[in-house]
Lab assay of single mutants.
Amino acid sequence: IQIFEKGDFSGQMYETTEDCPSIMEQFHMREIHSCKVLEGVWIFYELPNYRGRQYLLDKKEYRKPIDWGAASPAVQSFRRI
């Protein structure tokens, strides 16, 4: 998965294949504004440590949070399923 600090795949980008319990600790990001799921299925969580509201992401590109069903870019953790 590739995660971006700004919408439309702009700003700082990080790519990982590992679960992330805290985007702040692992990537020094506060929010995720866009992402590209390159393979597999992932779950975004609103809070750290896989808690809070969940969003299921299939293999595709998400230009903004509304594309994965979120009203805001408040994603604090994610993991692959």
Rank of each mutant, 00 (worst) to 15 (best):
R53H: 07
G11W: 03
A71S: 04
Y50A: 01
D67M: 12
E39H: 05
D8L: 14
P73R: 09
P65C: 03
M24I: 08
I23S: 07
I81Y: 01
S10A: 07
E5W: 10
K36T: 08
Q54Y: 04
I3T: 03
K59G: 04
F9N: 13
S22Q: 08
I32L: 11
P48C: 04
Q2T: 06
R30H: 11
I81Q: 13
R63W: 13
Q54M: 04
S34F: 00
F27Y: 09
E61M: 08
V37I: 04
F27Q: 11
G69E: 10
I1E: 00
D58K: 11
D19Q: 15
V41L: 11
S10G: 09
I3C: 08
F9I: 09
G7W: 07
Q12L: 09
Q26D: 14
S22I: 12
L38K: 08
S10N: 14
E61P: 14
W68P: 02
K6V: 12
G69M: 13
I66Y: 03
I3H: 01
K64V: 10
E61I: 15
G7F: 14
I43E: 15
Y45Q: 00
A71T: 06
E46N: 02
R53C: 06
K36L: 07
E15S: 14
A74R: 15
M13A: 09
F27G: 11
F78H: 03
S34C: 06
D8W: 12
P65N: 02
R30F: 10
L47H: 13
E31G: 11
Q26E: 14
K59P: 03
Q2H: 14
Q26T: 06
S10I: 06
G40N: 04
E31D: 15
K64E: 06
A70I: 15
R79L: 02
E18K: 11
G52L: 01
H28N: 10
F27D: 04
V75A: 08
E15K: 15
Q54W: 02
P65R: 12
I1V: 13
E46R: 04
M24P: 05
C20D: 01
S72T: 05
R63S: 08
I32S: 05
S10F: 05
C20W: 06
E39A: 13
I32G: 03
I32D: 00
Q54C: 10
K6Y: 07
E46T: 04
Y50L: 02
I43G: 12
S72A: 08
A74M: 09
R80P: 05
F4L: 00
H28I: 14
F44H: 01
D58N: 01
A70P: 12
K59F: 05
D19P: 03
K36N: 07
S34Q: 01
Y50N: 01
I3L: 08
F44M: 13
R51L: 08
F9V: 04
P21I: 06
Q2V: 07
E15C: 04
M29C: 15
E61H: 03
H33K: 04
D19R: 08
L47V: 01
V41A: 13
P73S: 13
D19Y: 10
T17F: 09
G11N: 09
Y45A: 02
R53D: 13
E5L: 11
G11P: 11
M24Y: 05
Y14A: 13
P73W: 14
G69L: 11
N49Q: 09
K59N: 01
S72Y: 15
E31R: 13
Q26R: 10
E46F: 01
F27M: 11
C35G: 13
Q54N: 14
M24G: 10
K36W: 15
T16A: 11
M24W: 15
K60H: 00
T17Y: 02
K59T: 14
F4Y: 05
F4R: 00
M24R: 09
I43T: 14
V75H: 15
F27E: 11
R80D: 02
E18A: 05
K36R: 11
S22P: 00
V37H: 05
M29I: 08
K64R: 04
Q54E: 06
I81K: 03
K64P: 03
R30P: 10
Y55V: 04
F4T: 01
R30W: 14
M29D: 12
P21W: 12
V37P: 12
L38T: 11
Y45I: 00
E15M: 03
K36H: 09
V41W: 04
Q12F: 06
Q76S: 15
H33P: 13
H28Y: 12
M13D: 07
H28G: 13
D58V: 11
D8F: 13
P48H: 03
S34M: 01
S22Y: 15
